[in-house]
Design a binder for these strands. Sequence first.
DNA 1: GCCGTTTTCGGCCCGACTGTTTTCAGTCG
Length: 577
Amino acid sequence: MNNTDIAGIFEHMANFLEIKGENPFKIRAYRRAAQVIEHLPRELAVMLAAGEDLKSLPGIGQAIAAKAEELVRTGRLAAWETLRGSLPEGLSELLEIPGIGPKTAFRLASELGISSVDELERAIRQGKVASLFRLGDRTADNLLHQIESLRRKDQRIPLGRALPLVEDVLSMLRPLPGVKNLVAAGSLRRFRETVGDIDLMGTADYPEQVIRSFVSLPAVRDVLGQGPTKASVILADGLQADLRMVEHEAFGSLLQYFTGSRQHNIALRARNQKRGLKLSEYGITDASTGRLETFATEEDFYARLGMQYIPPEIREDYGEIELAATHALPELVERSDIRGDLHVHTHWSDGTASLESMAQAAKEAGYAYLAITDHSGGLGIAGGLHEDRLLKQQQAIHELNQQIEGIRLLTGIEVNIMSDGRLDLPDEILSGLDVVVASIHSSLNQSEGKMTRRILKALENPHVDILAHPTGRLIGKREPIAVDLEAVFSAAAQYRKVLEINSMPDRLDLKDNFIYRARELGVLLAINTDAHRPEHFELIRFGIGMARRGWCRPSSILNTRSVDEVLAHFRQGNTSR
DNA sequence: GCCGTTTTCGGCCCGACTGTTTTCAGTCG
């Protein structure tokens, strides 16, 4: 049983306990455990097999550790079987409907015998729901609307689609007269790989005018609501965006509050409550005096708590609060730290641009070096390079290096890892290149054992420098390959191989929690764009966002180093066996 | 059920809105 399944069961248990009116803190404990487990970089089964104590995980104590172990060992959980037997199975899905909480769900089940969304819809149409005590026509009507919108609701959408959309909106509103602040908060600001709703907030001299302009933007498909300081709209892709205009003095605490994450805020408040400070979106209240202090910036807000400013990307209650309190947060990698890209394509394979224009674009991006890594000729990739054309390309790169100034091109290849782990170019060819990026593009459905052996074999090749997009996932389109990443990370650390953080918004591969784990194991990472055209260099910000979510300092990222240091690192990898 | 620079017991984030009431429970973010 894997982590997703286990987390799912704990989440269901929380729902059922809630419906039964159990202790709310017990319920919260199950929810928190589910979240922690869901985002673990390693399988609980693996940790248990290694003899590790699950109680060392945050939010997991004696009882939940034992239950998790029971699930791993037997695939079942007696406590869960009992619980689910005591209530109608479908009740959990009722909680998905906005407006229905545990109390209402319980009453719908006990008083009307409803146990599914379909049954609820029928009951509403028959007028049964509106006749219940403390419910009425309005409530029933709203629920019906929620059910309908839930059925056509778009999923969370990838960050790569949401961010440009939101930036468009912001760039049209910011020039309005009197606008001081205007930013997106929420999971978008934290650079989560997918986002649900968008929370925009700002301060301005004439807030109503900003609201009016907002709802009449061309990107707005539908206006859900509009008041003097707040409006809700639907943008393209079905993305809901809320704009909130506030007083300038309270902007800092409001931004902090709406940036989240929820877990971060809960932990932050609990911690400071003990010190007599009450935190809210309006500011900080000293319990002894009852006086509310406001904050125009987040920096001031955190400083008042005696803490370092915490970058949004790591506000996940993953230890950042404690470190910020002792001023020991890591300095996270930034765009300006990046000195080159080690994975790009040109029209020599499936890219669209020439060597020259890619070099020029990299130079404009502020880079000192650029590795040209077109596809190797093997399996089914359009226009991949065979040995003769690769040699010609190397020649062209050498010549271009003579002509251009301000950037150094490195020769390279993105070589296919074939289904048995061999590479589709011979070692003699690979040894003549500055950078060898290896990746999987075929036979993606192999078993975990086979896939892991395949990748480990590729990593054992002394000429391989970087493993690109290690899991092969495409967000929302293709599942990651089945592979024992823990084994891959260990091998990479041992052989000094570099793992890629691919910045393509539909890849973001490795993802945040795996970056965190790889870094923990001492693996060096590279943030690459995998650019296929000059504009793609801009996508580096997504990779940087992931790296920051994985707590990477510049020292964890190879391409923050000079070209000589990069090449020196590859040479070490080549001779370390 | 979890957790500990005041605690191994006694706490556990905070405020607003909605619809239904006549003082507030339930839900949400």
